[in-house]
Nucleic acid binder design. Sequence first.
RNA 1: GCCGGCGUGUCGGAAUGGCAGACGAGACAGACUCAAAAUCUGUUGUCCUUCGCGGGCGUGUGGGUUCAAGUCCCACCGCCGGCACCA
Length: 801
Amino acid sequence: MSKSYNHSYIEEKWTKNWEEHPINVNDGKRPKYYCLDMFPYPSGNGLHVGHWRGYVISDVWSRYKIMNGHYVIHPMGWDAFGLPAENYAIKMGVQPAVSTAENIRNIKKQIKKIAAVYDWDMELNTTDPKFFKWTQWIFEKLFEKGLAYEKEMPINWCPSCKTGLANEEVVDGKCERCGAEVTKKNLKQWMLKITEYADRLLDDLDKLDWPEKVKKMQTEWIGRSFGAEVDFQIDGRDEKITVYTTRPDTLYGATFMVLAPEHELSKSLATGEQAAEVEKYISDAANKSNVDRLQGKEKTGVFTGSYAINPLNGEKIPIWLSDYVLADYGTGAIMCVPAHDDRDFAFAKKFGLKIRQVISKDGKETDDMEEAYTDASGTMINSGEWNGMESAELKVKAPHIVEEKGFGRAKKNFKIRDWVFSRQRYWGEPIPIIHCPKCGEVLVPEDELPLKLPEVDRYEPTGTGESPLAAIDSFVNCKCPKCGSDAKRETNTMPQWAGSSWYFLRYVDVNNDKELVNREKADRFLPVDMYIGGVEHAVLHLLYSRFWTKFLYDLGVIGFDEPFIKLFNQGMITGKNGVKMSKSKGNVVSPDDLVRDYGCDSLRLYELFVGPPELDSEWDERGIDGVYRFLCKAWNMVLENREKQVEPTKELLRLRHQLIHTISTRLEAFSLNTVVSGFMEFNNKFLKLKGGVDRETLETFVILLAPFAPHISEELWQELGHETSVFAEKWPQADTEAMKEDTVEIPVQVNGKIRATIEVAADAEKEAVLIAAKEAVADKLQGSVVKEIYVPGKIVNIVVK
RNA sequence: GCCGGCGUGUCGGAAUGGCAGACGAGACAGACUCAAAAUCUGUUGUCCUUCGCGGGCGUGUGGGUUCAAGUCCCACCGCCGGCACCA
């Protein structure tokens, strides 16, 4: 008897065989199923066991769908632009294109060891001009539709490295590399108007079968609120200050007003004796980094000396400046209702400003409020003609009332900002714009796309904050495509998000050089049915992808406006004590050695067995022994029973259908760790059967195991005498009648404590069960029986007093 | 601060309100072996016990609902993640 199976031989054999005879066929008749992995960034560090997890999950799901009769689109590609590649290339003195290609070769080799059914004919790479031609094309369409524009924006600037920094490179307000204090520098940036799509991005979340957590994160990120803009006349001047408020119902309670220091009127509002102090506050705020500004929870502020008129009651209220008001949200100015807003309350308390309650739970005024009453429920008081109204009702009506009265209008606001789309870097898609002194911003003509990166020796940052491309004259200088005058190319490149915002559309038509994707193919194979990847992309990548998909839908390029119908976020695999795997921590576990020693099938099973797929799990080196032993035992179980000619008894039939039911329902519920334990459990049961296992049950076992451990299953399938692939088999259906047990063990409780166990027929009548139960616990039944509960097939509980 | 998620043996983890600890790891004992590894068998929450059964206690803490709570409700503690002055 063989104690272990030869995984190396089997896995090699079937890898080759599947290459020659693909198991996933598009015969034009099968319904499609698109199962997508978030494509990896081809880092030089290679894959660790954590990367495997998502790929194993998606592959199990893909193989399951294949066995359910689908043609599965299951592609893989490379998100290869970006900072790390550029920095690595600078350090090593090689072209990013060269090192990237090298990394892709290595990672592809590693990924192939997973034995996923990826269709490598669909492979794509965001840095391939054939691909990014269409990334640039999308930008041109956005520009044509007025959704791409230029704007002065502050970027993170390291004065010591003389370079712009990504947010990820700024740690605690300091440059990640040199530790210098990061400052802001204003640079002209390309922006994309994602805000134009904010409503749709929010409303369409309802259509998606996504984790609630991710939907919530996107909802908050978009941050829609309804309220009103209200105009306040400045006392003694012609100008008005407009504020945004979500609580126009509390307008009578507005006792002061606060402007952001950056507000355009801030300086001019300062009167005589306040001028110096105001000036100082404004310049202090400008010098404070964002981090400092957010750290100081204690409110600061300064009175301008000016007053505004509350348009509702004509009251004169003081105007203050404070940095708790954000310049770039709303109008950069707020009306303050300290009685009903926590921040306004704290500010009023600190500076001794008037607090007027306008909403009351019981209709009476509270003496000495200790905290703001922020609920929009209660009765209006101190509010003139609004007195006695319900605040919740008024909150909805008030925007329209101020509109009718002529000093405001209903207004919707968003937290989401437009997308800063340019990077001052070399290794990204060039933005296809030409700056002409006469015509302004002109698009590179479509037939000149792709606009490739120049191949040069130096692509270090320039030191001025500009892109390295700015130093390359042959790239920069060009003629205006419109008027022919000397012009200059845009030298900023696109962010790494660009390619990943639409790559999933391209897989189904990677070689198309006429269009982004053929519409017929798009209609047939898209959208993505299942998208699997880490939760770290909950907001940015998933929001940008949805934005571009909606834009392309509006253009008519595709016929759907949501890219990913279902989303699954797998948890991280960490090292000991939940520490993230990283080279610097020295806790990286490489899958390559494990594949060599235990085989791909064992590693696949252990990736699933390690814990619930949606939660983080710690990698335990020894754990893989367990699944390896299971595979050896399963191998022997099948081979030993193969020749036995066992009759399918009722018990075997029952076990077979219980197995189908267990595996199928757990798989459908994505409870993949318990799928593996389910296989182990049934295998143990089969091994204990004296009479052996019948052929059909063995075959069922192998078919069910196939998506999880494909090589060993395929080999066993062949050993069972089949010439076709196990993946050509249909996923079995459980017969619920055959599953049923004849007798069941029923625990008998007395007052909720188990005192005995009885065995009864599965279809026994309640009365009979209760009689048997009472017999079994007769000695425990002191006192009178108050209640008898029988949950059929589950439990008996007898309550005595 | 707010919003999520989680808290179960030595460890990873199982449990549509119905026998807590499935499955696996580890440990211990035994078989095989000259020996070890591998493999196989058994034991393995905890306490009491007359060691024969049996019984008490046990799912972060305190309360509640229920015939019955790891599971539902309330309050709290701890860890992880997200957002963080959004008017």
